[in-house]
């Protein structure tokens, strides 16, 4: 469960990224958050992973108040939310296997468990033959699949995907969305931030539209309306 109660984020008096946003996302939902560039979508993601702090209001995941999370607890929070970025954010000097394993290593998981889990998630995204490759040796779609594998490795209940298909062609976009849909089918909550009209319309899931830092529509089975 994710809830935002009257959340605002202001960088200064003139720059307001989010204003009085309230929303509630049930466990297992797949929600698309759409909006134009600068509408506040990415700020919302940053608030959820504690990269930014809300200026006012409350952000809760489960019964954990993210607005009050201590700096020391931020790594714990991030290990429990899978995050997918448009620019992949893979470690360039690590192989596919090492990138995925790193997410477990930071959490102090045992080498035995890492050897067991990492190949499993890499297989889920179909990269079992490319485990020893470095990110620059992969296509954009493959890199994004590595990111999905990394986000899955903790078996999180929530995955936040910020423009995951922004740098991909139509075929790779469809593949990534299919993978995310399958993950959602297994009960993981997916928060998909996108401005890709086709993706949103194809999913036929809940769509929240943000404009000027405010929620302007929230449809249970919506379409891209901007």
């Amino acid at each position: 469960m994710i809830s935002l109660e009257s959340v605002s984020k202001k960088y200064n008096r003139k720059s307001v990224a989010l204003e009085d946003v309230s929303l509630f996302i049930e466990p297992g939902e797949m929600v698309s958050i759409v909006g134009q560039s600068g509408s506040g979508k990415t700020t919302l993601v940053k608030l959820l992973i504690a990269e930014e702090r809300a200026s006012s209001g409350r952000v809760k995941i489960g019964d954990w108040d993210i607005t009050r999370v201590s700096r020391r607890d931020v790594p714990l929070l991030r290990r429990q939310i899978g995050v997918i970025f448009q620019d992949f954010k893979l470690l360039a000097k690590k192989t596919v296997y090492e990138n995925v394993a790193f997410a477990l290593q930071v959490a102090g998981e045992s080498p035995f468990r890492i050897r067991e889990v990492v190949p499993e998630v890499i297989e889920i995204v179909g990269l079992q033959d490319k485990m020893s490759r470095y990110p620059h040796q992969l296509s954009g779609g493959e890199q994004q699949r590595v990111v999905i594998a990394r986000s899955l490795v903790h078996r999180p209940k929530i995955i936040v995907a910020d423009e995951p298909t922004g740098n991909l062609d139509a075929i790779n976009t469809q593949e990534i969305i299919d993978i995310l849909s399958k993950i959602n089918d297994f009960g993981t909550t997916i928060l998909l931030v996108t401005h890709n009209k086709d993706v949103v319309n194809h999913l036929r899931k809940r769509v929240i539209t943000i404009h000027g830092g405010q929620i302007v529509s929230d449809q249970q089975s919506g379409k891209y309306r901007l």
């Binding site: 995941i61 489960g62 019964d63 954990w64 020391r72 607890d73 790594p75 714990l76 290990r79 429990q80 939310i81 959490a107 102090g108 998981e109 045992s110 903790h154 078996r155 999180p156 209940k157 929530i158």
Partner: peptide, 21 residues
């Protein structure tokens, strides 16, 4: 430090353990 683990119940350990070292 009490941390509410709401998602996964694995043995979270934020300490700088020997394995991490």
């Amino acid at each position: 430090m009490v941390v509410r683990l709401f998602l996964i119940s694995s043995q979270e350990n934020i300490d700088f353990s020997m394995l991490s070292f």
